[in-house]
Write a protein that binds this DNA or RNA. Structure first.
Lengths: 333, 333
DNA sequence: CTGTTAGCGCGTTCAT
DNA sequence: ATGAACGCGCTAACAG
């Protein structure tokens, strides 16, 4: 199994120079006479030499690869972020090791450890919550980490997000303005601070400003899936809600479909505003009104931030908030 | 920047044994006296030692990571395959380097090269077509490669797919049985053999068996997006088609939405059968009838096949076809 | 069962 | 501008 074993040494010998010189031209070190550079380049080309990144990694202590922990690539919200991450990673000559965690705490720290063992230069984490054990692992490794579309209430690690509190407050206020008094809050795991702390807080604030009492029966915690959305419609309806803010697009479509299949006419009989503005919102019928957030950019900016950290550059702000908005499409009056 | 630099040497010294012994216990080599194993393990735990995978890779010439070239993670079809790939990769202790290619030939070979430079143990390729330059790169590296949901007409590289010819023939036949005579064939790039060769062949065969003349005006080549589907509806309609087989779910939903928004009632006014049976088919309204194919499994089996190749096991069949089917949901009578 | 000794392929001083 | 030599952390024979 002699895998392509042309080393820097072969090139050096063939070109009549030393390994050091070859290394220099490969790494673009200017201290090489143009003539010899040309000669070396030529040999490299002729021998079809390809630098071994592993050896390089060992010697330089840099792998030019970053780890990305993602709950599930199959979820359009996360895959959109991932795309942004990969694009700017590529832009900065990094590669991505992608690992699905299913938001399972144990898998997460497991994966984190193998990522660190592989000497990734940095890590981007997407997931429900930064548990203490996870934070512990983060800290004992000096590897830079940034959260994308995920939040650490203690703000001990860099992150890029939107202002979830304000976004949901605005969404709920919009619904209130449309005349709704009983607005369901349908979302995923409330252990995720994005749901249980921020979004819920925004929800309550909007209610408060409108002098509407908070009703715990209007809070629905479920999973991010179309099926879960369909299933929860009856409960939402039974609770007397006339509208809902939903934490995930797929879930929202499920709810909308559940309502529609049940004979409800949206948006007149029921209104919904979802949270991620993924492409699903335009695919659904009626199209989903939504909080807008720049998914691709969240990933892209997170990766950009990470490059700065890996590069030990000065960083003005470890936690960046990107702008959000509200678009009203077919599920609001 | 003293990154956690506890080496195998530190452990050896601290435990009063040689590096070799430490290496043995770390790698589960049975030739170690239980007592010393225990001692070493204890030191490893106390020192919080983590084997450096890069050094290991250099020494063993195995990185336990495989490269995955994907057109776009954001496309549910591919991300479904990716999920299957990652899951079995994890199962076999591999990690995945994920790289988006946008089906851009140049990016593909570019990415392929950096993957090889990083010494991945294997590669899974998803993409339109295996161009000659790509095949050239494949061959000059002795690295195992398998295609997932992608096809190489020359069958020179392993792959896992479904029988696209038969699947589409069956889909079209179903449409014909429903009384349709003018059936549009709406798909992506015809340069992709899956579209231009296999699916198209199945389409023609079905027509042929029903004695329906092939009409080139019913062939629509576009891109895999919802928008493209909406846009092409008017053309499909103008061509007089009463039904369509579509090569991508997002594209199909676009077509369906385009028709519906235009006042058509599906499935009575128009029928459509899509090709991937991704979760989008259940999300859309009406739900999409579809060729079914085990997306997750295609990825999983591809990865499994790759592990065998990396392991130099005997392989009975380099190109495996998984079963497909047809489900009729809301877009067929 | 355990220790010694070579590399793996490349980056990086330190001389020259 | 270029070369010699050492080391990155670990695996893999080979002895013992």
């Amino acid at each position: 199994m002699e895998k392509q074993t042309i080393t820097i040494y072969d090139v050096a010998r063939e070109a009549g120079v030393s390994m050091a010189t070859v290394s220099r031209v490969v790494n673009g070190n200017p201290n090489v006479k143009p003539a010899t550079r040309k000669k070396v380049l030529e040999v490299i080309d002729r021998l079809d030499y390809r630098p071994n990144a592993v050896a390089r990694g060992l010697a330089s202590k840099k792998t030019t690869t970053v780890g990305v922990i993602i709950p599930d690539v199959t979820n359009i919200y996360f895959s959109s972020l991932a795309r942004g991450i990969d694009d700017v990673a590529t832009m900065y000559k990094y590669n991505i090791i992608l690992a699905n965690s299913d938001e399972n705490g144990q898998k997460e720290i497991q994966v984190l450890n193998t990522l660190l063992a592989k000497q990734v230069d940095g890590i981007i984490f997407m997931g429900n919550q930064v548990t203490d054990s996870l934070r512990h692992e983060f800290q004992r490794s000096k590897t830079p980490i940034v959260l994308a579309g995920s939040v650490d209430p203690k703000e001990e690690v860099g992150s890029v997000n939107i202002d979830y509190v304000a976004a949901i407050e605005e969404a709920v206020s919009t619904l209130i303005k449309h005349g709704n008094k009983k607005i369901a809050f349908v979302t995923g795991n409330l252990d995720d601070p994005i749901n249980g702390m921020y979004r819920l807080k925004g929800y309550k604030q909007a209610l408060n400003k409108a002098n509407i009492d908070f009703d715990a029966n209007l809070i629905f915690e479920t999973e991010y899936s179309h099926k879960a959305g369909e299933a929860i419609w009856q409960k939402v309806k039974a609770a007397g809600a006339t509208a809902a803010v939903v934490g995930d697009d797929e879930l929202a479509i499920g709810l909308v479909n559940g309502a529609t299949d049940d004979g409800a006419k949206l948006p007149n009989d029921f209104e919904v505003i979802t949270s991620n503005d993924s492409k699903l919102t335009e695919i659904a019928r009626p199209k989903l009104s939504s909080v807008t957030q720049p998914l691709y950019d969240i990933g892209a900016v997170a990766m950009r931030l990470l490059t700065k950290m890996m590069n030990k550059e000065e960083i003005d702000n470890e936690t960046v908030l990107l702008p959000y908005g509200i678009v009203e499409r077919g599920t609001t009056k």
